[in-house]
């Protein structure tokens, strides 16, 4: 953020909508597809460019692929990530691979947007954070904004990118307010953000958990533990350099993810630290992951809250790697 830029406070959701509207103004070849047409976009751009589709995610995802290959720059809103699972063929077999398997003949610039995460008491099908499933598919880029500023800057980069980009947006953060410049700006994909500097432990946190990690860092500071909080912001490409540099400095790593641990983004982040000889040699403690329990997300509030990580669990993880204070009565 350059000094002297005019700022104002808007929400995470407003930042997303602003980004889309501004890029649609800038790029006449862009159009918007979703099972609902956002009224503000519809009013400004009309029904030709802002299309309400039937609830047919496979078709609307494939339509975006075909239109992109024909010179357009579609923006697709799947609404919740859970709905895109019925379009998996179009995402995994088509959108991700089409540029490569046709030898790079034409580009497929598409932005896909989907909300992720839980905390809304909507149970198993509507509380998921399955971004690592998509990280596993070569050919997709993936962003995961945690603030209104990051949301707008990352979405703008995504819409100017010539590849399919999936934006996973935390449903818990929709009403979160933050400072966003009046003027045009972008945030490059693949550039992590150090949300708080520290020296004793690195906490890499994703999406909503960035805010929980910042809260944890506040309370850890009172205990004399200095935590550095890193937000990768994009998962593909993933900024290994920033994460490794931080771990080389602190010697300790906690990874906080609202998804389960198995083959998750947290596993990938742990691996990129462990595989780098220089970073590995700096580790003073085992890596600690603070993730959701590996279960479908349950409905009843006590159950749901138990399943998800939060600031307390992140703090416990940090105490474990810094002071070897056992987590959960010894179960780590």
């Amino acid at each position: 953020m350059g000094s002297g830029q005019a700022m104002r406070r808007i929400t995470y959701d407003q930042a997303g909508m602003e980004a889309v509207a501004e890029e649609m103004r800038r790029e006449p070849k862009s159009f918007h597809l979703g099972t609902d047409a956002p009224p503000a976009l519809l009013k400004e751009f009309g029904a030709q460019r802002v299309r309400a589709t039937p609830i047919a995610e496979s078709a609307l995802t494939g339509i975006a692929v075909g239109a992109a290959g024909s010179g357009f720059r579609p923006i697709v809103n799947w609404s919740q990530v859970t709905f895109c699972f019925v379009a998996m063929d179009q995402i995994v077999n088509q959108a991700a691979k089409i540029h490569y398997m046709f030898g790079g003949q034409v580009t497929f610039p598409i932005l896909f947007r989907a909300s992720v995460g839980g905390g809304t008491r909507r149970a198993a099908q509507h509380s998921q954070s399955p971004y690592s499933m998509f990280m596993n598919v070569a050919g997709l880029k993936i962003i995961l904004p945690s603030t209104p500023y990051d949301m707008k800057g990352l979405l703008k980069s995504a819409m100017r990118d010539d590849n399919p980009v999936i934006s996973f947006e935390s449903g818990r953060l929709g009403a979160l307010e933050g400072e966003v410049p009046e003027d045009d700006y972008t945030i490059p994909l693949g550039k992590a953000d150090i949300k708080r500097a520290g020296s004793d432990v690195t906490i890499v946190a994703l999406a909503w958990l960035v805010h929980e990690a910042l809260a944890a860092a506040d309370s850890l500071a009172k205990e004399g533990i200095s935590a550095e909080v890193i937000d990768p912001r994009s998962l593909v490409p993933l900024d290994a350099d920033t994460i490794r540099a931080s771990v080389r400095k602190t010697g300790r790593l906690v990874i906080a993810d609202e998804a389960g641990p198995t083959a998750g983004a947290s596993a990938e982040i742990a691996a990129l630290v462990a595989e780098d000889p220089e970073t590995f040699s700096c580790l003073k403690a085992p890596v600690k992951r603070v993730c959701a329990l590996q279960v479908p997300i349950p409905y009843s509030p006590g159950l749901e809250d138990h399943v998800f990580p939060d600031r307390k669990k992140i703090s416990a993880g940090a105490r474990f790697v810094v002071r070897r204070v056992p987590v959960d009565g010894g179960r780590t």
């Binding site: 975006a64 992109a68 088509q94």
Partner: peptide, 14 residues
């Protein structure tokens, strides 16, 4: 059936 939505997108582009 994988190509059917894609070419429908070409139809929308047209």
């Amino acid at each position: 059936a994988g190509g059917i939505p894609i070419v429908t997108g070409a139809g929308l582009a047209a």
